[in-house]
């Protein structure tokens, strides 16, 4: 089981398996890219072969018929506002439970941990009833406000913040900084790794969210990229093949690029582990 640096047949086998795995994982991405530059009939009749001739008419169609810019705008409004609000408010609460020993803090933190155990499906219907009665259905804040802070993210940031030495805080307090200033000037910069984790989870989560927009943003002018792609795909089955692959590529490639640059942060966010 120890890593070895000698050439052996078992090393050959290991690399052969790793390469096969890599091809299987990468192929669907390749399939998506390849079909996005084919013509419609070619996608339907020979989906697995390489494009005979590269065409970008699918991408053109996406902007003309799917109103891609509007979809991107809506998804960005959601993802950016949820990411900023949730990361900030979760960090604020995390700082209080990590570093300010106010009476009742431990009980409050215990209560937070309990709320984390409740499966999300329980909230689906009653939250819809509530948002419906408030008249928020069809408006962005129906999704933004309930996501403005979350216990799981408070927990993640808190776990990081407890390791910040108290001496740093005491020194700043002696210099006359109030807690708000301290939070903004000292705590937030020191907590950058935890904030990156939470920001990534927030952004990917809201960008990829399907059920939320399906319930609350079900009018064409408020469609997000995910909902727009779904509606486009199911409205006329078998049609629009070119546009579907072009749209799929456009939605996915920006995320993949960000992932390539921040892969360590992504692994920490999604798997909660640090790898060298």
């Amino acid at each position: 089981m120890l890593p070895s640096r000698r050439f052996t047949w078992s090393m050959v086998l290991i690399y052969a398996l790793l390469i096969i795995g890599g091809i299987v994982v990468f192929y669907p991405f390749f399939y998506m890219l390849m079909n996005s530059v084919k013509t419609g009939p070619e996608i339907l009749h020979s989906p697995t072969s390489l494009p005979r001739q590269i065409t970008f008419s699918g991408y053109q169609g996406v902007f003309e018929r799917l109103n891609m810019l509007l979809l991107f705008r809506n998804s960005l409004i959601l993802a950016v506002s949820i990411t900023l609000l949730n990361t900030f408010l979760s960090a604020l609460a995390a700082y209080a439970v990590a570093k300010i020993p106010f009476p009742g803090r431990d009980q409050l933190f215990g209560f937070m941990l309990t709320t984390m155990m409740i499966p999300g499906v329980l909230f689906l219907i009653p939250t819809y009833v509530m948002i419906y009665r408030l008249g928020w259905v069809g408006q962005f804040h129906a999704l933004i406000i309930p996501s403005a802070v979350s216990v799981y993210n408070i927990f993640l940031i808190r776990q990081f913040m407890v390791s910040i030495p108290d001496e740093i805080l005491e020194a700043a307090r002696l210099d006359g900084a109030n807690e708000l200033l301290l939070f903004w000037r000292v705590i937030l910069p020191l907590s950058r790794p935890a904030l990156a984790t939470v920001a990534i989870l927030n952004f990917i989560g809201s960008w990829n969210d399907f059920l939320g927009p399906l319930l609350y943003l079900n009018q064409p002018e408020t469609y997000t990229v995910q909902l727009g792609l779904y509606q486009f795909k199911t409205s006329i089955p078998g049609e629009n093949a070119q546009e579907i692959w072009a749209a799929t590529t456009l939605i996915t490639v920006p995320l993949i690029l960000v992932y390539f640059f921040l892969q360590d942060q992504f692994m920490r966010a999604f798997a909660n582990v640090t790898l060298k």
């Binding site: 089981m1 890593p3 070895s4 090393m11 890599g22 994982v25 991405f29 995910q226």
Partner: peptide, 30 residues
Amino acid sequence: LLFKATYFSRLFRTIYFMPVVVSIVVLMTI
């Protein structure tokens, strides 16, 4: 396998983790 591989381990890890960022709509389309 990644633990035993000495070279390119990080590259394979990057590829294997890539589908995690894909959305469900895109996942099911593909």
